[in-house]
């Protein structure tokens, strides 16, 4: 990572499926909930604010929200959000954008997350880390308990 990338994340993946399929997996609330592991309280539309609840094992039950920005079918899908907080504090949101492109054998998906200012970065990273430490501690105590019982 260079210094210039220090407030931006970009990841790419090649999916062996046509753009129309990838688009529906990204933007249909039912499909989104399966791979993203969060349940939304409605369908996706530009400008809409959706309340979400995480179903990810590391952050299960945590509420957050996203504000859908652009939806250009089979091309661009973006939202702003503030993971790690259910508060409606739009000053501290980051912006997530998915771009779809045709590629040999399928669709190239690029996701970028921008707008980290230190506060959002620390809170965002911690939102999951704290929780996973919690799980590790629970597992440790279980192992200890099992060891003592044996």
């Amino acid at each position: 990572m260079t210094l210039h990338d220090s407030n931006k994340i970009e990841r790419k993946t090649l999916i062996h499926a046509p753009r129309s399929r990838v688009w529906s997996a990204l933007t249909s609330a039912a499909e989104f909930s399966k791979w993203f592991r969060a349940d939304a309280d409605g369908s996706f539309a530009p400008g809409k604010r959706l309340e979400m609840v995480s179903t990810h094992p590391k952050s299960n039950g945590k509420p957050f929200y996203v504000i859908i920005e652009r939806m250009e079918p089979e091309h661009t899908f973006s939202w702003s959000w503030h993971p790690g907080s259910a508060k409606r504090d739009e000053d501290e949101t980051t912006r997530v954008e998915f771009r779809l492109e045709d590629a040999a054998g399928g669709t190239l998906v690029t996701v970028t997350e921008t707008g980290f200012d230190g506060i959002s970065l620390a809170r965002r990273a911690k939102a999951f880390e704290e929780n996973s430490r919690g799980w590790e501690l629970q597992l440790e105590s279980l192992v200890r308990y099992a060891g003592e019982a044996a």
Binding site: T13, A25, R37, V109
Partner: peptide
């Protein structure tokens, strides 16, 4: 993000 994208890829 890597984990989320790989789940998306698998599901499709």
């Amino acid at each position: 993000w890597d984990e989320a994208l790989s789940r998306l890829k698998e599901s499709l």
